[in-house]
Computed example of a mutant assay.
Amino acid sequence: MSRSILLHPNVPDAIIFRDTLSTLTVNFEVFVWPDCPSLESVEVAVIWQELNDFPAMLPNLRLLLVCGSGVDSVIESISIPRSVPVVRLVDQYIRERVSDYVVMAALNHVRRWDHYVRHQKEARWHRLTDISVKPKVGIMGLGLIGETSALKLAAMGFATCGWVRTRRSRNLTEVYVGDKELHDFARQCAIVVCVLPLTHQTRGILCQQFFERLPEGAYLINVGRGGHLIDNDLLQALDDGHLSGACLDVFESEPLSVQHPFWSNPKITVTPHIAGGLRPEWQATHAAEVIYDHMNGRTLNGVINHVTQY
């Protein structure tokens, strides 16, 4: 029997992905569903976002690859045998894009860039005082993207720390772990960056109680998921002056409603979920590496834990 790799049709640029992957894998034919002569031959599937029961159609599935870094919608929507590894395709392109966004947002805040954009619209020549010393940045979530962001910020002179839910070796010196250490983490952060996966434990974590633990004048950058943030709690913290501002790239409902108060709040920068991005050539190249490692019995990075959901 031939061996196949099957792409779900909602994979971004699925045809380019298929063609690239075909040149990088041996002993496999690559198809985009439903153009597949035999579902029994499929050993690897590549998916993105909601799928219903797509993997259940594949009786001999050995590996499931998920495009991009977010798997919350996938884990919630399908039933996957625990024997089948589910791997996020967090390639170097994604890591560089999101971490660059985080650095940009932090520097914009420190150099007061948003104020100058508004001043230009008013033809106002007025120099503001920059934040004299680069403030400490706390990264919530030290996966591939979070760690890359922390290392870039540190290289630019920002003091950095991290908060995670599980204890293991990290490439960051100051790391806080679990709910018991969340308060100690928060009080360190003049800028806090959320790069967490969205799970039952992290939903709504950016809330009034958390904001109150941050230093007065703290700044929020959210590139995780919209479900991490309680919108009204952020607006209240900004109105009270406890937070100085926020840069938000992800939202509970996308696209963000034109009536949403985030649009008109001068302390909030809104971007339309553009921090990351998928390039089929990069995703396919990374997929080929993961497939090779799996078929040769090597340890895989980025495997999703069905219990923790990341």
Rank of each mutant, 00 (worst) to 15 (best):
A123Y: 10
A123W: 08
R124A: 09
W125R: 11
W125D: 13
W125F: 15
W125C: 10
H126A: 12
H126T: 12
H126S: 13
H126D: 12
H126W: 04
R127F: 02
R127M: 10
R127P: 00
R127T: 12
L128P: 08
L128R: 13
T129Q: 15
D130V: 08
D130H: 11
D130W: 00
D130L: 10
I131Q: 12
I131W: 01
I131P: 04
I131E: 09
I131G: 07
I131K: 11
I131S: 09
S132Y: 01
S132Q: 13
S132T: 13
V133F: 06
V133E: 14
P135C: 01
P135I: 00
K136Q: 12
K136N: 04
K136H: 06
K136C: 10
G138Y: 07
G138C: 08
G138W: 06
G138E: 06
I139F: 02
I139P: 01
I139C: 02
I139N: 02
I139H: 02
I139G: 00
M140Y: 01
M140R: 04
M140A: 09
M140H: 00
M140L: 12
G141L: 06
G141F: 04
G141R: 09
L142N: 06
L142R: 04
L142K: 05
G143P: 04
G143Y: 06
L144D: 15
I145M: 03
I145Q: 07
G146C: 05
G146H: 04
G146N: 07
E147L: 14
T148V: 02
S149R: 03
S149V: 08
S149T: 13
A150Q: 05
A150R: 03
A150I: 03
A150L: 11
L151N: 03
L151R: 12
L151Q: 13
L151I: 09
K152P: 07
K152Y: 08
K152F: 05
L153G: 09
A155K: 14
A155M: 08
A155T: 11
A155W: 03
A155C: 04
A155L: 07
M156G: 07
M156R: 15
M156W: 06
M156A: 05
M156V: 07
G157W: 08
F158Q: 11
F158L: 06
A159V: 02
A159K: 13
T160C: 14
T160Y: 02
T160H: 05
T160S: 04
T160L: 07
C161A: 11
C161E: 08
G162N: 08
G162E: 08
G162R: 05
W163D: 05
W163A: 09
W163H: 14
W163I: 08
R165T: 14
R165S: 14
T166I: 04
T166V: 10
R167G: 04
R167W: 02
R168F: 01
S169E: 15
R170S: 14
N171S: 14
N171D: 13
N171W: 00
L172C: 09
T173S: 14
T173F: 00
E174S: 13
E174Y: 02
E174I: 09
E174W: 03
E174N: 15
E174P: 05
V175A: 06
V175Q: 03
V175I: 10
V177Y: 07
G178R: 01
G178F: 00
G178M: 02
G178K: 01
D179Y: 00
D179A: 13
D179M: 01
K180E: 13
K180V: 10
K180M: 06
K180L: 05
E181Q: 15
E181Y: 00
E181N: 07
